[in-house]
């Protein structure tokens, strides 16, 4: 393996083909990242390696071995380190998913590398990521020879899937050492349901609604539309103002209604991940620099506790 740039993903599991294509297009923007090698870790599923080599044109190294069935941080880290041997990659890219952000720091420490997470922009060796609920973008420059990066899904255009020249595929068995943690299984979270699935309009409450009582204004606003539902950001559910069935986002539901009205929601990446696909986005927020306004088609900068009653009045009066 002499590639300067590696992409690491699970054989099966959380990295989607779309995320892989986004990782390849990100990797190609890196200095010296023209021909990244994709390392797939997991149980032998030959079709995934071959398919990945075909759609990306990149060389693929598929690693199999003990404890690599379901994601396990220690085993996955060992597997990658063993495969690396003496090679010294300059960049190691993973998707910013539950797996990627779990594995990246462990790899970085073992390689003496910098770890930069949730990257959504790049210019030379400067990586851009959001801070403070997305209100600011910040640029980071690594000062080590190797940098491990997790790339925010949806931030880079996916490489168009090509079928002309498939990359070479190598399957290799590795032997990760004993692990102190064991992954026992994956199951559906029973607290979930999909109350938002069929809604054409979703009116969502964020922490900015301020109190449990103010949720009634959100319900009232939703009540104005036919086929509408009430959504929420994660903190609103954590606070018990609304049940988790209402949560929109990367760890809640992904929705794409015709209309999404975000009330008092800052627009953190994890929330955006769940509602970006909405056809029309209207945001009401007191902070003119809230990240949600970057994605909204219409924005209203107001305190919602005074604005929503006026809006409801106008809606009824009209």
């Amino acid at each position: 393996m002499d590639s300067l740039t590696l992409i690491i993903a699970e054989q099966d599991g959380s990295t989607t083909s779309q995320e892989l294509l986004e990782l390849v297009s990100f990797a190609r923007m890196l200095p010296g990242g023209g021909n990244p090698t994709i390392v797939l870790v997991g149980t032998a599923r030959k079709d995934r390696a071959e398919k990945t080599a075909a759609t990306t044109g990149c060389p693929v190294l598929a690693l199999t071995g003990d404890h690599l069935g379901l994601y396990n941080p220690e085993a996955f880290c060992d597997a990658v380190l063993e495969a690396l041997g003496d090679t010294e990659p300059a960049w190691i890219c993973l998707a910013h998913t539950s797996t990627g952000v779990d594995l990246a720091p462990r790899l970085a420490v073992n390689l003496g590398a910098t770890c930069i997470t949730a990257v959504e922009g790049i210019s030379g060796t400067t990586l851009t990521r959001a801070v403070c609920a997305g209100r600011y973008c910040a640029d980071f420059t690594p000062s080590t020879a190797c940098t491990v990066v997790t790339v925010l899904p949806g931030a880079f255009p996916p490489l168009p899937a090509s079928t002309d020249t498939a990359g070479p595929v190598e399957h290799r068995a590795v032997s990760p050492g004993p692990c102190r943690s064991r992954t026992l299984g994956i199951a559906e979270n029973t607290h979930r349901d999909s109350s938002l699935k069929d809604a054409e309009v979703i009116v969502s409450a964020g922490r900015g609604v301020g109190t449990r009582e103010n949720i009634s204004m959100i319900r009232e606003l939703a009540g104005v539309f036919p086929r509408a539902a009430v959504g929420a950001s994660r903190p609103v559910c954590d606070l018990g103002w609304l049940g988790y069935a209402h949560q929109v986002g990367s760890t809640g539901q992904t929705v794409s209604p015709k209309l999404y009205i975000a009330c008092g929601i800052s627009g953190a990446i994890q929330h955006l991940a769940g509602m970006r696909g909405s056809q029309l986005i209207i945001a009401i927020n007191a902070d003119p620099d809230a990240a949600i306004f970057r994605f909204a088609h219409y924005g209203i900068v107001e305190d919602l506790t005074t604005f929503l009653p006026i809006l409801l009045e106008e809606l009824r009066g009209g």
Binding site: T114, G134, Y136, T141, P142, S143, F293, H297, I300, E302
Partner: peptide
């Protein structure tokens, strides 16, 4: 291991419209 070299407010996408006026007008 890394330095923060710059910070800014992100640009608002050009498609977005911030509605102006009094609360009633908005």
């Amino acid at each position: 291991l890394s330095r923060c070299t710059g910070v800014r407010l992100p640009e608002i996408s050009s498609q977005g419209v911030i509605i102006a006026g009094t609360p009633r007008e908005k």
